[in-house]
């Protein structure tokens, strides 16, 4: 089996994979980073969104081999120890999560969105969430959380 190496949440990691191993499987099964979730098989739900070399991707639609040598950020790498990232703090403050299953993907999507657009409008946030499904919240509190998280990040 081929071996791959990458940097995940600042840590150098290596592991063996098959050709068919998805990046999400490598993260979850090999590295034990189970915060990245799988909610569908057609790349619709967005629960598996991570950052790959600085941009958001659906890790269920990337082969692990394609991430060889890459820089990966998962939900486990967002907080600073026990201190939540301002975006995570905003999700908590605004009740932007219920069951929590879509949440890692939402937070990483929010961070990518704000990186591109530090002061988004309500409509821009909603459009930016077109690749992420939430079945619990009706989205309003997620949108409010992201707007507030962006504000906190602007300082």
């Amino acid at each position: 089996m081929p071996s791959i190496s990458m940097t995940v949440n600042g840590q150098a990691v290596t592991g063996e994979v098959e050709g068919r191993t998805l990046l999400v499987e490598f993260l979850r099964d090999t590295l034990g980073l189970t915060g990245t979730h799988v909610g569908c098989d057609t790349s619709q739900c967005g629960a598996c969104v991570i950052h790959l070399d600085g941009v958001s991707v659906k890790s269920c639609a990337v082969l692990a081999l394609n991430a060889d040598g890459a820089e990966v950020l998962t939900i486990e790498g967002v907080a600073d120890g026990d201190d939540l990232h301002p975006m995570q703090e905003a999700f908590r403050e605004h009740h932007g999560l219920q069951c929590g299953f879509c949440t890692p993907g939402m937070v990483l999507t929010a961070l990518a969105l704000v990186a591109d657009n530090p002061d988004p409008t309500d409509a821009e946030v909603r459009h930016g969430l077109e690749g992420n499904l939430c079945r619990c919240t009706g989205y309003q509190n997620i949108v409010h959380a992201i707007l507030d998280g962006a504000k906190r990040m602007r300082g």
């Binding site: 189970t34 486990e76 907080a79 939540l84 995570q88 999700f91 929590g100 949440t103």
Partner: peptide
């Protein structure tokens, strides 16, 4: 009252069925 479970869910420490080994 803000949720006690949120810290876990927001940091990827939720323990869902497929996370159990």
């Amino acid at each position: 009252v803000r949720r006690a479970e949120d810290h876990r869910f927001l940091t990827g420490k939720g323990n869902y069925i497929d996370d159990i080994t």
